[in-house]
Structure formats: structure tokens, C-alpha cells
């Protein structure tokens, strides 16, 4: 807790404020970027370690683990996406592992890293869970959104994609075109929004609860904290998995002919 015994409101607000540079839209959450980069590089380093030593013979532990992840992602893509998987596989693998690592940051006791940043580096604010920052989740889901459009155009062609936009789902009657269009636009926009908000909401809420638990007396914290952490261990991979599967499903739907 901060030095001068802050009020609960101050404590919570402090924990929910990003380390930020710049003003307005053109500002950056340095903490989110830093931790997602560190985790992402950790992920890439680990993957590379598995891939560099990849042999067709008996796999080592790292290779085995990376292979399990690769197969898992590959299987998920195969089930929902009918096209070539050279890009889709790495996409889903990256999403799953990266988001999983983001979410895992939630299990680090809420005061440790902010305290360290404050005392050692003199940073006023620090939030360590990238997935509790909507910028991070929207960054992911908007990229996915662009890929949905890209794969829609690639799978159906510009004409096919546009045609589906105005004739689906109600039919090709000219009178129905506006309704089709409105529904499709809403549906299109709902995809990245729901993807991002689902992940953000889950992790933000979880982080908030950990913060609230941290305000209890120290000798009782382990009971609610332990219970919540155990519950959260289920949420962490689940949310990462949902993000990956929905990405594969959305892109698969956009790619496929109806």
C-alpha cells in the first residue's frame, strides 16, 4: 500500500491508473505495452527454443510442450477454418499463448510489481495485466477484425463478400437490402467489440477483486485470495481459449461459402 495510508478509494484508483505518457488519444500506456512486449518476447523466445531444437526424433521437454501448443492451435483452426493454415495456425497460437500469459499476470500479488516500480524506478503508477486494459484487448480484436474482412474478401471475392453483405440473412429482395445491410454491419462490429470486451471484462473484474481482497487485514487475505485465485486459474486459460476459438470461427465463417 502507498506510503501515507491511503483511503480505500485512493488505493483502488491508484491501482487502476495506467502509467501513461502523452495526452488525449495520442498517449501510450507504457505499462501495458511494456508487459505485453515482455510477455510476447518471452513467448517468442520459448517458441524459438522449441522450434530451433525441433527434431523428428525423440522431442525434448520444451519441444514437446511447444508441439502440444502448436497441435492444439492447429486442431482448433482445422475444426473451424476450411482454408490453408499457414497463417491461421500461427495466428491462433499467438493469440492463445499471448493472452494466456497476459491473464497469468493477474496471479502476481497486486502490490508487488507496482511497489517495486515505485520504490526502485520511481514510477507513480503501474498496471501489470495487459488484458485488463481495453487498449490491449481491442488492439487484438481490431487486428482480428481486419483479418476477418481480409479473409472474407479472399475467400468469397469482393463481389461475393459484398453480395453476402446485402442479401444475407433475409434474402435478395431489394426491399430487404437495408435490413440485411444494417444487420450485417452490426454483426460485423459486434465481433471485435464482444471479443475485446469479454476478455477485458473478465480480467478487469478479476483484478478489481484481487485489489479489494488486498485491502483486507493481512492475516485473512489468504482465504478469499486463495479461493479467488483458484477460481481465476480456470478463467485464465478459458478466456485465452475463447478468444482463440472465436477468432478461428469468425474468420472461418467469413472465409467459407454459404
Amino acid at each position: 500500500m502507498a506510503s501515507a495510508a491511503p483511503s480505500p478509494t485512493e488505493y483502488v484508483t491508484h491501482h487502476l491508473t495506467h502509467l501513461k505518457v502523452g495526452e488525449g488519444f495520442w498517449s501510450l500506456h507504457v505499462d501495458t505495452l511494456f508487459f505485453s512486449w515482455v510477455l510476447g518476447l518471452l513467448m517468442i523466445w520459448f517458441f524459438r527454443m522449441g522450434a530451433n531444437r525441433a527434431t523428428a526424433g525423440v522431442p525434448g521437454r520444451v519441444q514437446n510442450f511447444v508441439e502440444t501448443l502448436v497441435e492444439f492451435a492447429d486442431k482448433t483452426v482445422r475444426e473451424s477454418f476450411p482454408g490453408p493454415r499457414a497463417f491461421m495456425g500461427p495466428l491462433c497460437l499467438t493469440i492463445f499463448v499471448w493472452v494466456l500469459l497476459w491473464n497469468l499476470m493477474d496471479l502476481i500479488p497486486v502490490d508487488w510489481l507496482p511497489r517495486l516500480a515505485h520504490d526502485v524506478f520511481g514510477l507513480e503508477y503501474l498496471r501489470v495485466v495487459p488484458s485488463a486494459d481495453p487498449n490491449a484487448t481491442f488492439g487484438l480484436s481490431i487486428t482480428v477484425f481486419l483479418l476477418i474482412i481480409y479473409y472474407g474478401l479472399k475467400g468469397k471475392g469482393v463481389g461475393g463478400f459484398a453480395k453476402e453483405f446485402v442479401t444475407h440473412p433475409f434474402g435478395a429482395n431489394p426491399l430487404l437490402v437495408p435490413f440485411n445491410l444494417i444487420l450485417n454491419v452490426v454483426e460485423m462490429i459486434a465481433k471485435p467489440v464482444s471479443l475485446a470486451l469479454r476478455l477485458f471484462g473478465n480480467l478487469y473484474a478479476a483484478e478489481l477483486i484481487f485489489i479489494l481482497i488486498a485491502m483486507l487485514p493481512w492475516w485473512i487475505q489468504w482465504i478469499p485470495g486463495g479461493i479467488w485465485a483458484v477460481f481465476h486459474i480456470l478463467v485464465i486459460p478459458l478466456q485465452a481459449f475463447i478468444f482463440m476459438v472465436l477468432t478461428a470461427v469468425y474468420i472461418g465463417l467469413a472465409y467459407e461459402h454459404h
Binding site: 502523452g22 498517449s27 501510450l28 505495452l33 510476447g40 499467438t94 495487459p130 488492439g139 487484438l140
Partner: peptide
Amino acid sequence: DINATLIGQGLTFFVFILVT
């Protein structure tokens, strides 16, 4: 608070996908 972090995250994401 939506800001340019979004763009940074999106680009990072894309780079990681490509590297993978």
C-alpha cells in the same frame, strides 16, 4: 481510456504472429 496504445498493441500482435 482508449488511446494509441491500441495501435501499438495491434502492431505488436501482428509482428508476433508473423514471427511465429
